[in-house]
């Protein structure tokens, strides 16, 4: 089937950003966050595609490392969040009853609770020593709920279908049914959920970093903006310092969003035709 336009555009954006940010660092031995590596406030040139900032860092290389770190965090956290949502959503939808009601109550609560204030406290309490492991764990705690809801409603509708009953009567146990009969259907939703989760994670970390509550020593899409704001990039005319990460973030998020909705569309039409 012909890939739809949204999906194509989304994947192209993601491929360029991902390959760029993972391959380019191989060709440099520069530490992007070290200050004073270069002269300050240099204009755009062949050596510095985006110039240097007012603390002597190369904006382009800082951005490349930021993008890579944000992606690693996003993908890593989303992987665990998706597994958690899969386990809870599938079991909740399939087992049903009181178990389902309790799990759904918890799920809806996690969706409704404003996570940001809680993250802010944590960010403050462990400021300076925020390890990405710890931040990642907390993001998993706040990142699984939406997906679990989707997976659960999928499992719920599948449970009533004929082939599931057939499997049940032919003696398959619950785990086998979940894995062999239901999982293949849920799989496509998981991909969409996975991408949405990456969006959530990168966004949340960046938001925390922008106000200085993530580990801003590590380059991420948020910490680059934190430093730019911290050194008043706008007022001293350092537009590239702030515009470059803004544009990159918008592009990355657009790429992720287009891929997720495009894939959703593709899957919806495929289901419609089969």
């Amino acid at each position: 089937m012909r890939l739809n336009f949204r999906l194509k555009l989304g994947i192209i954006i993601l491929l360029i950003l991902t390959i760029g940010s993972f391959v380019l660092p191989i060709f440099t031995d520069v530490n992007p966050s070290e200050q004073g590596t270069y002269f300050k406030n240099m204009p755009i040139s062949r050596d510095h595609p985006l110039g240097t900032n007012s603390i002597g860092q190369d904006i382009f290389w800082y951005l490349v490392f930021s993008l890579r770190n944000s992606l690693v965090l996003g993908v890593g956290v989303s992987f665990f969040a998706v597994i958690l949502s899969l386990l809870l959503g599938l079991s909740s939808g399939y087992i049903g009853g009181v178990y389902d009601r309790v799990i759904m109550l918890v799920t809806d609560s996690f969706i409704a609770i404003p996570s940001f204030p809680i993250l802010i406290v944590l960010g403050t309490l462990i400021r300076g020593q925020t390890s990405f492991w710890y931040l990642g764990t907390v993001l998993v705690i706040f990142g699984w709920a939406w997906n679990a809801r989707t997976v659960r409603s999928m499992a719920l509708s599948l449970r009533e279908r004929e082939f599931i009953n057939t499997a049940r009567f032919s003696g398959s146990n619950t785990l086998e049914i979940l894995l062999q009969e239901i999982f293949p259907y849920v799989y496509a939703y998981l991909i969409v959920g996975f991408i949405n989760s990456i969006l959530f994670v990168i966004n949340t970390e960046a938001a925390l970093a922008v106000i200085g509550l993530s580990n801003v020593e590590v380059p991420t899409l948020g910490s680059i903006i934190f430093w730019a704001l911290n050194y008043n990039a706008m007022f001293i005319g350092q537009y590239m310092w702030i515009v470059a990460p803004v544009v990159t973030t918008v592009l990355l998020f657009l790429g992720l969003f287009l891929t997720s909705t495009g894939y959703n569309q593709l899957f919806a039409t495929r289901r419609g035709h089969s």
Binding site: A206, A207, I242, V246, T249, V250, F253, L254
Partner: peptide, 13 residues
């Protein structure tokens, strides 16, 4: 589609 994925802090900036 273009507005949706833009995070709050970027819009604010």
């Amino acid at each position: 589609v273009v507005i949706y994925p833009i995070p709050y802090y970027i819009l604010a900036l």
